[in-house]
């Protein structure tokens, strides 16, 4: 099963490498990883998506909790949550293709954020599935470059991950 684990981490040098190191050291898988500062300057928020059996996920959360710099964590997939990923994609777009790509982008509520006579740069926001679907819809031949941000997530409703 795919899990999204959200971690509050001390904003200190070396903390991130400990988290990443843990995953490779213990043979856990990382599908995506994002990290950035929070409203509290002493904390970073890290989101990692991973795949594993219940037993493995339990170990991942326990081992993460053992790291001294991990202040708190939550497995977002255990409850209602919102997840978003950002995609920037550069595609070949000339002649009749241009209108076709524009239509596809509209269907996905994507935005063309830069263009040249032969290239569109498009931004898509959504779940990872939606981003996958968009790339498929565009078709392999015209894709020049793909940049994905990795998943960020937050619990729905009143629930917060804070101190």
């Amino acid at each position: 099963m795919r899990h999204i684990i959200s971690v509050l981490l001390e904003n200190e040098p070396g903390a991130l490498s400990r988290v990443v190191g843990l995953f490779s050291q213990r043979n856990y898988n990382i599908e995506s990883l994002t990290v950035a500062p929070t409203e509290d300057g002493t904390l970073s928020r890290l989101t990692v998506t991973t795949v594993g059996s219940d037993k493995v996920i339990e170990q991942i959360t326990k081992q993460l909790n053992k790291l001294i710099e991990v202040v708190k964590l939550v497995d977002l997939t255990e409850g209602a949550h919102v997840e978003r990923e950002l995609l920037l994609i550069k595609v070949r777009a000339s002649g009749a293709q241009r209108a076709e790509i524009k239509r596809t982008a509209d269907v996905f509520r994507a935005q063309i954020i830069d263009m040249t006579p032969s290239v569109y740069t498009i931004q898509v926001v959504g779940t990872s599935d939606k981003l996958d679907a968009f790339i498929q819809a565009i078709g392999n031949t015209s894709v020049l470059e793909v940049v994905r941000s990795g998943v960020s997530g937050i619990a729905r409703g009143e629930k917060i991950l804070g101190l």
Partner: peptide
């Protein structure tokens, strides 16, 4: 040495 020892320490500090 912080990097080298990272997987085999309880914690490390500089």
């Amino acid at each position: 040495i912080i990097g080298v020892s990272r997987p085999i320490v309880k914690h490390s500090m500089s």
